[in-house]
Every structure is written in structure tokens, then in C-alpha cells.
Simulated scan of single mutants.
Amino acid sequence: MTGWHAPDDLVARYTDGSLPEPDAWSLEKHLESCGHCAARASHAARAGTAGVVLAEVRNAVLDAVLTSAPAAQSAAKAQVPASAPTSRAPVPARPVPKRARAVGGRLGRMVWAAGPALRGAWAGAVLLVATGALALAYGGGFEGARPLLLALAPVVPVAGVALSYGPHADPLHEIVATSPSGGLRLVLMRTAAVLAVSVPLLTVAGLLLPATDPRLPQAPTAAAWLLPGLALTLATLALSGYVGCRTASAVVGCGWLLALAAPLLTAPNPDLTARLTRQLSLYFTGASPQWGWAAASALCALLLAARRSAYDRLETM
């Protein structure tokens, strides 16, 4: 039983077949858990134009059952030998433990909520980025592994958001998006799952990377990308309410990479690693940049809350 009940006009449109399919799917999901609305829908169906047909079908089924029941009982008695016992206790089915049902149901809901990104190749790609940085640093002796990882880390969750929501990512998107658990709530759940995978892997990889050459500028710390990554992720979600997940992810991700690459192409220093490290220090190191990223995160979160109804529309996402 839920605290929300379907309006009378919505129930009437559902019973007469004029309600659009996505709205009808959403209402059917609500009727499964709300006996009050289910009774209202049943009463509306009986009172409508289909009520006569439903009554005829019901009467026909009852007549068929009542007519065939005595004949079936007589045939069954005739087939039972006289020496056979008149009744036999049924073998009870082995019950499924409640704990097993609860664990299975909870695990299924968690996997569904995690979204296509974690069920697909994206999680493997995050692991590949982390292990690839360690392989470049320790196996290949590449001194720019830490700056390169810090440059890519903020856009990794952005890519996960693009692969977590929308008809391009989820074959069941229309059904999922129109369910009571869809919309912004589902977007945030899948984004949280993306962050839960990417943040630990990339942060631990940054901590394991060796320090940069003393002759090069000091690279930001391994956790310095967390606030920028959060701000870019929230910016992607906020922009998704206008242009969709894929377009928003492409705009935010390309904007971040362009903001890093443009100064590198115009700097006079020929050492690319030193230029990238210096640029990352401008964006990540110090109280002012971090407070700026925090303010951007708060602003995007407010915009996301103000536009929360946009995530309920299939054509938007």
C-alpha cells in the first residue's frame, strides 16, 4: 500500500484504453501494490462499456465450470480402483527459506539498480585504466603515469553515467523509466553505483603510483580529483535533463579534456609531462580550486533538484 492514489481521470482513461502505454505501465505497477486503486480500476472497468462483455465472459466461465465439474468428478471416481485408498495426503513442497528469498530479491534489486554500466564492459574499462597506469609506471618506467591518471579520472564517472541510463544503454528503459522507482531516483542510484566502483579503484591506483621525478613539478595528490570528478558528474546529470545522458556526457567530458589540452598546446615548455602536471596543479591543488569545485557541485545539485521532473519524460533521456 502506498501513500499515493491514482486520480479518477487516470483510472478512467486506463480502463477505457485511452491512456498512453508508458503511463499505463506505470499505473499497472502501482496497482500491483495498492489494493485500493486496484479495486477502483476493477469497478471502473465493470461500470464502463467493457462491463457488459466482462459480465458475459464471467458468466460463461462459471457455467462451463459448474457444468463440467460433476462430469469430471464422476470420471475420476470411475478411474480409481476399488482397492485404492479414497484419499492420499499430498506431499508438501519443500519451502524456500525466507532468508534465501530475501537475499536473492535484495541482490536482484541491487543488480538492477546498478544499471547497464556495471553489468557491461565499463567496470572492466575502469579497472584497465587503473592497472594500465600502474603498468606504465612500474613496467614501462613512464614518469607521467600519475598526471595522466589524474587527467582521466574526473571523466571516468562521466562515461559511466552515459552508459547507465537511456534507451541506448538499457533495452528495458521505457519500462524502467515509467515505473514508480524510475526518473531521477533511478538516475541517482545508478550514478552512485558508478562512483562506488570508480572512486576506490582510481584513488587506490593513484596512491600506488610512484612519486614524480624531483626535476618535474609536483603532481597533485591522489585524492585531489574527487571534488572535480563529483562536479563533472553532477554537471552531466544536470545537463542530461535538457539534452539527454549521452549528449551531456560528451559535452562535459570533451569540455574537460579541451580545458586540459588547450593550454598544453600553447605552452612553450616542450616537456609534455611537466606541462600536464603544472596544468593539473592549477586545477586541483590549493584551497581556491577545491572550493571552486565544491561550489560548482552545489550549484549543479541545486539545478538537478529544480529540474527533477525532466527525468520522468522518456523523450528527454
Rank of each mutant, 00 (worst) to 15 (best):
L272D: 09
A123G: 11
G108M: 07
P154F: 00
M1T: 07
M317R: 03
V251G: 01
R215I: 10
L136W: 03
P81H: 02
V96T: 14
H43D: 15
R190A: 04
P95S: 13
A295I: 13
L314S: 11
A55M: 11
A294C: 08
L118W: 05
R101D: 11
A261S: 13
S179I: 09
G286F: 02
L257H: 01
A153Q: 01
G286E: 04
L19M: 09
N59K: 15
M317Q: 12
A231N: 03
S240W: 03
A193S: 14
V243A: 05
E28S: 10
A169C: 09
S164R: 00
A69C: 10
C245Q: 11
T221N: 03
H5W: 11
T15A: 05
T86R: 15
A262M: 07
G104M: 10
T236H: 03
S249E: 02
L201Y: 06
A193Y: 00
A130I: 02
V65C: 09
L302C: 14
R106N: 11
A55Q: 14
C300P: 02
A169M: 08
R246A: 12
V176P: 05
V251Y: 00
P220D: 03
Y242E: 07
P95K: 06
C34I: 06
Y283G: 07
V197S: 05
D213A: 12
R58W: 10
S33A: 15
R119F: 01
L239Q: 00
A38I: 01
K29D: 13
L232K: 02
A82P: 04
E56D: 15
A211T: 07
V103T: 13
A24S: 08
W25H: 14
A193C: 10
E315K: 06
R99F: 12
L207K: 13
L19K: 00
S83Q: 15
A219Y: 00
T15K: 01
L186K: 04
L150Q: 02
A250H: 10
A113Q: 08
S198D: 09
S297N: 04
T233E: 02
P270S: 05
T191E: 00
Y165S: 11
G17V: 02
Y283V: 06
A44Y: 06
S198V: 10
Q218E: 14
A196M: 12
W225I: 08
R119Y: 01
G253N: 03
Y138W: 10
S87T: 11
A219S: 09
A130N: 03
A224Y: 00
L128R: 04
V197Q: 06
A121N: 07
L299M: 08
L31N: 04
P154R: 00
G139F: 07
R58I: 09
P180S: 13
L234K: 04
A145I: 01
S240E: 02
G105E: 04
L136E: 04
A248K: 01
R275K: 15
